[in-house]
Design a protein around this nucleic acid. Structure first.
Length: 765
RNA sequence: GGGCGGUUAGCUCAGUUGGUUAGAGCACCGCGUUUACAUCGCGGGGGUCAUUGGUUCGAGUCCAUUACCGCCCACCA
């Protein structure tokens, strides 16, 4: 035992209880000082010590935790990545575990806006740049919290390589990608029916929306010669056709004819179209078609060449096309219009029992208004095709067939990806509009006195504001859909204003394997791409894993990771999802403080099946594994005590002969356990691996073999202790990826001649 | 509407080539202060493996059916 290790064990090792609080931080510091987490350093250390080193790398990227909050229980699943990294490192692979932090654009902004609200402020009180800087400051404070908490769990990540999503280098790579895609025709700006949230003031991709069931009145209204059913009479001013099913005999004669509809604000002339998307069984079998405010109608509009007329504005209110209803909020207008239709004798009946699914955002479940807005889009066909091919060919393996199936289905059905978000916190879209060429741009800005101005840029200039004044206090810019623009990351000249939209978070995090490894010319990229292992929960299978696959194939020309491990959600002890409203949220830091990181890790890795859809965690479980850590500790203590009470030195395991039947059995079982545990980990069956060592250590070694050796005398006892020591050393190696702290502490005390720390010792064979 | 999971002890779950009497942890009951550990030891109770049917010498395990629970995707006004 060397001086350094004495410092943190010493008399402490005589304690009958294992106190994790006394050693965890110190051991972590020691690993870090020794260079255990650096692939290069740890590789050299093993080489020098004469331990096996492989010619192959093992690399795993840490899914960057959101920088907007402290860690939650889900982050405890990072133990899976750490288990793999530690295991592979011990097997002799040059192992890189690369950490990072995400800016989590939209989510962070939502969190920050809630904070502002508490202070009686809102995002509208700040110009764009100031708001961005404030949020960035907020994030920087929190990302330290997140990183330090990850250290507490024992992550053997190379922190010197930590990447933040808004690092200049990352942002530049993201810009490179956008520019390249633009040059290759994969980027376009278009009016498209997007999911717009009047509440959040931004667009969402399809993935960021969800459906909830809701009861709404279904209005049967007279519509020219027809009666039709609708829940949205307020969109009637944007109707540009009426549709029926082509097979519907009732309306066959009307197809292709023009009808006149007496509206509440004049008379509409509409064409009757036939389209199979109409269900003859629903309502009366007649549908009003509103391409600008309904996804199905939008598609139908494209098929039939219909005009799309927007009647709802970004503020969620009806616009000037709606006559006296202009300025009303959607629901308000709906009621008013229904009432007026009733009074005009145009309302046939109302079905109050009608339930249907409405689209809401995934975060706050606020209603989504489908809107026709100019947005930046990425063409998905080519990108998804390459990713699909790689998945089908097995270039990337999945821990369960169902994830592969889901991935294939999603990649087969991708739609173009709207990547612009109308939020401030993110990577700003590198596109500039010239004022001279686009005088009709709409801007919102705050002047020096803090007064907000909103209007056409040319008008505001006429009023005496200078362009630089506008740019200085700029909040929002809306360029017309046919605006002329230049793609550039720096200003092309004084006449230009940059787009105020930012990229969808997943546009940058989708490039994570590339940016973290310094694509395209960095050493790490050459050395560690494609990465070996990627662990993530199923909730971001499409958001993130699919996007990484696409960017990986597009830029890196290879899959970004060879093995995907999809883990389950951590639920509470009754299998319920953790939620604030249920009050069943477990704070991982609390359990670490109380029972130790080792116990928490075991609770996740062995107490449940991480690859199941959901897995439950409970205090009782973690406590049980804390007991196991204590058991292990005392087994080691007792072994050392028995060895110390012997006279003379302990013979080498290779020099002992004439083993008893019990000794042979022990050695045989040990060998079986080593083989089985190794196989289980190789097959990613962590629970079975961990449980097997647990059972072996506790019930074979402690309950039986130690009891046996304890009662021996003389030479028999000496031999037994030689074997016991060997068994203990082997077991703590097997357990190290699961319980790094207690095993490392035992190693220092049990093997006084150790050349390297346990984290760099050789995996038993 | 399409697709996918799950159902094994009071609770959380294992059971990965179909093969003795179905296991673990926690909880429960009884006993126990031995050279470590009471965060321990020894012993014990408790399951018609959701339903029904099939394949098989043999089914918790494979196939089909039903029921219940849950998830994902989706443009039914």
């Amino acid at each position: 035992m060397n001086e350094q290790s004495l410092a943190w064990c010493g008399s402490f090792f005589m304690d009958t209880k294992f106190d994790h609080t006394k050693i965890e931080d110190e051991i972590y510091q020691k690993w870090q000082n020794d260079g255990v987490f650096s692939p290069e350093k740890s590789f050299e250390i093993r080489k020098k010590a004469g331990l096996e080193v492989k010619n192959e790398n093992f690399s795993v990227l840490m899914p960057p935790p959101n920088a907007n909050a402290a860690l939650h229980c889900g982050h405890a699943t990072y133990a899976i990545q750490d288990l793999m990294a530690r295991y592979k490192r011990m097997c002799g692979f040059k192992t890189l575990y690369l950490p990072g932090v995400d800016h989590a654009g939209f989510e962070t902004q939502v969190v920050y806006e809630r904070k502002l609200k508490k202070e009686g402020k809102s995002r509208f009180d700040f110009d764009r740049q100031t708001l961005f800087n404030n949020i960035l400051e907020f994030v920087k404070q929190n990302s330290d919290v997140a990183v330090n908490q990850l250290r507490k769990i024992g992550m053997s990540a190379d922190w010197d390589r930590t990447v933040f999503m808004l690092d200049d280098r990352v942002v530049n790579t993201v810009y490179d990608t956008f520019e390249r895609m633009y040059k290759e025709g994969l980027v376009y700006r278009s009016d498209y029916l997007v999911n717009y949230s009047p509440f959040h003031g931004t667009t969402f991709s399809n993935l960021e929306t969800t459906h909830i069931e809701q009861k709404d009145p279904l209005y049967y209204i007279k519509y020219g010669p027809f009666v039709l059913a609708t829940v949205r009479p307020e969109t009637k001013f944007g109707d540009t056709a009426v549709a029926v099913n082509p097979k519907d005999e009732r309306y066959k004669e009307w197809i292709g004819k023009e009808i006149e509809v007496e509206g509440l604000v004049g008379i509409f002339k509409l064409k009757v179209i036939a389209d199979s998307y109409v269900d003859p069984e629903f309502g009366t079998g007649v549908v009003k078609v509103t391409p600008a405010h309904d996804p199905a109608d939008f598609e139908a509009g494209l098929r039939h060449g219909l005009e799309a007329i927007s009647v709802i504005g970004l503020d969620g209110r009806l616009n000037q096309l709606c006559g006296k209803y202009a300025g009303m909020k959607v629901l308000e207008a709906r009621k008013a219009i229904a009432e007026d239709l009733r009074n005009a004798g145009l309302l046939v009946k109302v079905d109050e029992t009608y339930t249907h699914n409405i689209v809401v955002d995934y975060k706050d479940h606020k209603p989504i208004e489908p809107m026709l807005l100019p947005n930046w889009f990425i063409k998905m066909d080519g990108l998804s095709k390459e990713a699909l091919k790689a998945v089908r060919e097995g270039k990337v393996k999945f821990n369960k067939p169902t994830w592969k199936k889901q991935m294939i289905t999603w990649l087969e059905n991708t739609r173009d990806w709207p990547v612009s978000r109308q939020i401030v916190f993110g990577i700003r879209i590198p596109v500039w509009y010239s004022y001279t060429e686009n005088p009709s741009m709409h801007v919102v800005f705050i002047d020096e006195k803090g007064i907000s101005h909103d209007g056409k840029l040319s008008e505001l200039i006429k009023q005496g504001f200078s362009l630089s004044q506008v740019i200085e206090g700029l909040q929002k810019l809306i360029a017309p859909k046919d605006a002329k623009f230049i793609v550039s990351r720096i200003s092309p000249g004084e006449d230009f204003i940059q787009d105020t939209d930012t990229f969808d978070t997943w546009f940058s995090s989708g490039q994570w394997p590339l940016t973290t490894l310094h694509y395209p010319n960095g050493e790490d990229f050459k050395e560690y791409y494609p990465t070996s292992f990627m662990d993530s929960m199923w909730d971001i299978l499409f958001f993130w894993l699919a996007r990484m696959l696409m960017f990986g194939m597009y830029l890196g020309k290879q899959v970004p990771f060879k093995q995907v491990y999809v883990h389950g959600r951590i639920d509470d002890e009754f299998g319920r999802k953790m939620s604030k409203s249920l009050g069943n949220v477990i704070d991982p830091l609390e359990y670490i403080a109380k029972y130790g990181a080792d116990a928490l890790r075991m609770g996740i890795l062995v107490g449940g099946n991480t690859s199941a859809k959901n897995t439950s965690l409970s205090e009782a479980k973690v406590k049980g594994y804390r007991n196991f850590a204590n058991k292990l500790w005392n087994m080691a203590r007792f072994t050392i005590m028995m060895i110390d009470s012997l006279e003379g030195t302990l013979p080498d395991i290779n020099n002992i002969l004439d083993l008893t039947e019990e000794d042979k059995l022990m050695m045989g079982n040990l060998e079986k356990t080593v083989k089985s545990v190794t196989k289980h980990i190789d097959k990613l069956r962590f629970q079975l691996a961990g449980d097997e060592v647990y059972q072996f250590v506790w019930h074979d070694v402690a309950d039986k073999y130690i009891e046996l050796v304890k009662n021996r005398e003389g030479e028999e006892k000496t031999k037994g202790l030689v074997i016991l020591k060997h068994v203990m050393l082997t077991c703590i190696k097997l357990l190290h990826p699961f319980m790094p702290f207690v095993t490392e502490a035992i190693w220092e005390n049990l093997d006084k001649d150790n050349k390297v720390c346990l984290a760099l010792s050789e995996w038993p064979k």
